[in-house]
Write a protein that binds this DNA or RNA. Structure first.
Lengths: 136, 136
DNA sequence: CTTGACCCTCCCATGATGGGAGACCGCAGC
DNA sequence: GCTGCGGTCTCCCATCATGGGAGGGTCAAG
């Protein structure tokens, strides 16, 4: 398979396939006589693994670790669970952070009449954050 | 005030103060005879405005818009609310995306025994995503 | 007059992804 | 054979917000 076919079959862009090879996530692809990269069904499988990892929000380094575990038939599932558990904790922390932003913004928006007048608690907060703890 | 004092007073790093000026978010700072940037209390106020906007997750372009509205005494609060509302929607979409990841991962982790054995539903899913809708 | 802390500009790096240039390859049609 | 189009090759550059560092100038206290 050429890179384009492998890309389509795995859902990874051609650009990223080359990139993953460049950063050593994938072994260097074999080449045709005319220097085109060649991919096997197993290569496509690894690409889909990476793609799925990205969809689940893993960083490239985490995926590198997971891919190593996947290739290693003697891995322990505890090692995999540890990587995934750390990632879940990271995701939850990020969610909490975003939810805090939403809460603050919705509270401010609730008190913003949103008409043609210039008074706006949202801008007031941006200009002077701590002075708006009036309603607890 | 020198840039270091303005940075400390606003909670923005020296690097970023210069950067905000470079991208036109802040007007070009006045300079001393020896080319040091000089800041007024109002400049520090704008820096804190930016800082607060970043803390609330606004992009630089959104902050640019909000800063423009803040400077414009004749703005309508509706314009501000619109920017903030769009941002809240973006945040909520992101939260939903992350929560979906967490849900998937927690479901998989729940079925991973996490011991020294190599069998692992987490890796199985990464390698073959759709084949695990066994328990609905 | 030296020392240390500050400031200046300019370049480079991140992480994941894409865009594009310039050149080459391969297959199809004429 | 020759042309043309689409795929591929390697490089370089851009994003977004942020920081690191080099190399050099400035200032105030000792």
């Amino acid at each position: 398979m050429n890179i384009g076919e492998a890309a389509k079959a795995s859902g990874v862009s051609v650009k990223m396939v080359r990139h993953y090879e460049a950063i050593g996530l994938l072994p260097k692809a074999k080449r045709t006589f005319s220097n085109y990269r060649l991919y096997s069904a197993n290569d496509v499988h690894e690409l889909r693994f990476i793609r799925r990892g990205r969809d689940l929000g893993f960083s490239m380094e985490e995926i590198r670790a997971l891919l190593g575990l996947w290739r290693n038939k003697g891995r322990s599932s505890a090692a995999v669970k540890k990587v995934a558990g750390k990632h879940v904790a990271d995701l939850k922390a990020k969610i909490a952070e975003l939810q805090s932003m939403v809460q603050t913004l919705e509270h401010l928006a609730q008190h913003c009449h949103g008409d043609e007048r210039p008074d706006c608690p949202i801008l007031d907060d941006l200009a002077n954050p701590s002075s708006h703890a009036h309603c607890a």
